[in-house]
């Protein structure tokens, strides 16, 4: 066998270099840049978490034993989950409207959604502070209507964080959903209607399953972004219930505890990546089941 394959191999070597290797040389600068900008800091952080103040894993032991850290992580995952769920509930009908509305109205709605993305993040967050505070419009309106007697605590707690972050994450849900929904043939829903499916059945049996890739993509993006979000939690949240990014910032900036800060950041990164891997697996399985 080998005597046959040798001339073949020589032939192959005589041919011009195959495309893949020249491809690598083209993307090499970009790869190096990614390595320097994204990978290197993470490695340095990891190193600090096992070297400061002394070499060893004591930072990680502290991390796992601390009740505060545990509560911060629970907070982070609960808020991120809530934000993702609520953003999906609000984003799905918005995305569907964007697909079915006449072009003029769809453009207007799309503008509103996108505009919120282009407005300065701090400005948007402060705007929510104004709206949600004890003497803000929302509390005043509710009290004016006689629905409540005392102002609801909507800010400086996780309620405020959830509201503010949901608003900020909405475009990241809507955009992938619109892409997915645009690809759904309109005749498919007409066919469903003639088959006897009313609105609810058509939604449940056709629109929802066919929107799943968009839901998964937008949901994952939102959840992962929420896990590490800093600005909104620190402005709209309270001191008593931090989220992970706030904890890391405090450890590093106020307490100068680079070791524990690094360990916390690394733990968050690992959890995020694990989640990403699981989602990716689920998505791929769904796709291969659908036959690609």
């Amino acid at each position: 066998m080998s005597s046959i394959s040798i001339p073949n191999r020589r032939n192959a070597a005589a041919r011009p270099p195959p495309v893949p290797s020249s491809g690598v040389s083209f993307v090499l600068p970009a790869l190096l840049l990614i390595l320097a900008v994204f990978i290197l800091p993470v490695v340095m952080l990891l190193l600090r978490s096992v070297t400061e103040p002394d070499p060893g894993l004591q930072n990680y032991r502290e991390l796992f034993e601390s009740a505060t850290v545990a509560r911060v992580f629970v907070n982070t995952f609960v808020v991120s989950g809530l934000v993702t769920a609520i953003a999906l509930l609000i984003g799905f009908p918005i995305a569907w409207l964007l697909v079915i509305l006449p072009k003029r109205w769809a453009d207007l709605l799309f503008g509103i959604v996108i505009l919120s993305m282009w407005t300065n993040l701090l400005a948007r967050t402060y705007a929510w502070m104004v709206l949600l505070q004890r003497t803000g419009i929302i509390n005043k309106t509710l009290m004016g209507l006689g629905l409540i007697d005392t102002p609801l605590p909507l800010v400086n707690n996780l309620v405020g964080v959830t509201i503010g972050m949901t608003y900020i994450m909405l475009p990241f849900i809507v955009l992938p959903l619109v892409t997915t929904m645009r690809a759904i043939e309109p005749d498919l829903l007409r066919a469903a209607a003639l088959c006897g499916a009313g609105r609810w059945e058509a939604f449940r049996r056709v629109l929802l399953p066919l929107s799943l890739p968009g839901i998964a993509a937008g949901g994952l993006l939102t959840f992962v972004m929420s896990l590490g979000y800093f600005v909104t939690p620190s402005l709209l949240g309270g001191a008593g219930n931090m989220m992970a990014a706030e904890l890391i910032a405090q450890l590093v900036q106020s307490l100068l505890n680079w070791g524990l800060g690094g360990a916390t950041a690394f733990a968050l990164l690992v959890l995020t990546l694990a989640l990403y891997a699981v989602q990716l697996r689920l998505l791929q399985r769904g796709r291969s089941q659908r036959g690609g």
Binding site: R190, L194, G198
Partner: peptide
């Protein structure tokens, strides 16, 4: 409404 008409339909494609 369409879904109560009990009419069958075959479209051009992709349905």
């Amino acid at each position: 409404p369409s879904h109560k008409r009990n009419i069958g339909m075959v479209f051009q494609r992709y349905t």
